[in-house]
């Protein structure tokens, strides 16, 4: 089956973002396709390139970036939420006169239309909130 995920949870509060990444890995291992992961609201903080965690802590960013690298999972970030939370790709950094990009390159800026498209083109849309 084709899965898409909607991530509303901050990676810095609770385990939901990490659980979602584990869900995506497991779905792929079970033979499914994960088409798109859409990050909205505080979920967009998963793309924070400059976030530093304790050495013994797996970060949500690592988990998501691996899914993009190894399994071509599209990591789509809601641009409105991202900008509110200070997440800029290089284009938005230039446009908003921010000296550098704050978003990991594994993620792409996107709009809510991509969420609607994910819902329409997937067999399952699984939401992770809280």
């Amino acid at each position: 089956m084709i899965y898409s995920l909607l991530i509303l949870s901050s990676p810095f509060s609770g385990d939901c973002s990490r659980t979602a990444a584990a869900f995506a890995r497991c779905a792929i291992a079970r033979g499914h396709t994960v088409h798109r992961v859409f990050f909205l609201d505080t979920g967009t903080l998963a793309s924070a390139a400059n976030s530093v965690s304790a050495q013994d802590e797996d970060t949500a960013l690592q988990s998501w970036a691996e899914l993009a690298d190894l399994h071509s999972v599209e990591l789509a970030i809601c641009i409105t939420s991202a900008l509110k939370h200070g997440m800029f790709d290089q284009t938005e950094a230039d446009r908003n006169k921010c000296p550098f990009s704050t978003m990991d390159p594994a993620f792409t800026m996107s709009g809510l239309g991509q969420l609607v498209d994910a819902y329409a083109s997937s067999d399952r849309l699984i939401t992770f909130g809280g």
Binding site: M1, Y3, T19, A22, F23, C26, A27, A29, R30, H32, R124, I126
Partner: peptide
């Protein structure tokens, strides 16, 4: 987590 994915199947 595999049980979770199985539920969504």
């Amino acid at each position: 987590i595999a049980g979770f994915v199985a539920l969504t199947e």
